[in-house]
């Protein structure tokens, strides 16, 4: 190593971040070069000086209170959502009882229609139909996961499809499903395009098994189901508070269901 290369690595060396091999070479050079040793001393005292003089900041005294209030409000919002969901549940249960007693089938639909949102499968398919441009194109699940930090309120771990076929992540973007921020991930599974949308839904009724619609249950995904709409197969399930929807126009319901069963 020569003096010029010492210049290059000096800071990483001082920070203890240089690999052993290269550190040894650098130290060997230092033994025979007083000029570089002087420089090393200079760098150390410069950094120490800067560090010691950088003023410690104190957060404004009311910032803690504001943050506390913000968190409490967030809890309140979650609580209200849960109660709203429960009330919808009570209302549908009551309506269903009336329906069963009177035996009037058409009322069933109005009871189910209480949440005034389009069915989840319609929402996710209309997202896929728009074919939105990807914001990050990456096959590396960790890089995609990192990209979502701070963008959505949950950890995005791109699922893997444990198939014998070749499957790879093409990329991702931030999107919405209803009012929820969603991670929108596109895969190529053995030449078939598969889209996964992940979000944290405050509305349990939104993801519940749709009654009276033609759906196939997913036996290994608790409460999960698969259906077909507008030529797309759609699978829905939730784990640990995060809802996953899997959509593909290239797979039929049965194939999509078996693909989802193999998701990790």
């Amino acid at each position: 190593m020569n003096c010029g290369q010492v210049q290059k690595y000096i800071h990483a060396y001082l920070d203890g971040e240089l690999g052993t091999d290269i550190s040894v070479e650098l130290e060997r050079h230092l033994e025979g070069c007083s000029r570089c040793r002087d420089q090393m001393d200079f760098e150390v005292s410069f950094i120490d000086e800067v560090r010691s003089r950088i003023a410690a900041e104190q957060a404004p005294s009311d910032l803690g209170t504001q943050v506390g209030r913000l968190l409490a409000r967030e809890d309140g919002r979650k609580g209200r959502r849960r109660i709203a969901t429960m009330m919808v549940g009570f209302a549908s249960a009551a309506a269903l009882a009336v329906v069963a007693w009177a035996g009037i089938a058409p009322l069933l639909r109005s009871a189910q229609d209480l949440p005034a949102i389009p069915p989840l499968e319609e929402q996710v398919v209309s997202n896929v139909v728009k074919n939105p441009p990807l914001e990050v194109e990456h096959a590396d699940a960790n890089a995609v996961s990192d990209w979502f930090v701070g963008k959505v309120s949950f950890a995005v771990e791109p699922p893997r499809f444990a198939t014998t076929e070749l499957s790879r992540l093409l990329g991702a973007r931030l999107y919405n499903v209803g009012d929820n921020d969603a991670a929108y991930l596109v895969y190529d599974v053995d030449g078939k395009k598969v889209t996964v949308q992940m979000f944290r839904s405050p509305r349990e009724d939104e993801i519940a098994l749709p009654v009276g619609r033609d759906v196939r249950r997913l036996p290994t995904k608790n409460g999960g189901w698969v259906t077909t709409t507008r030529g797309y197969s759609v699978g829905v399930f939730s784990t640990r508070g995060v809802t996953y929807t899997v959509t593909s126009a290239d797979l039929d319901e049965r194939d999509l269901a078996s693909l989802i069963e193999k998701m990790r």
């Binding site: 910032l63 943050v67 913000l70 968190l71 967030e74 959505v152």
Partner: peptide, 13 residues
């Protein structure tokens, strides 16, 4: 900082 705490709290699970 407030935004950071809110995001962190939402993702704390």
């Amino acid at each position: 900082v407030q935004e950071t705490y809110l995001k962190a709290y939402k993702a704390f699970d």
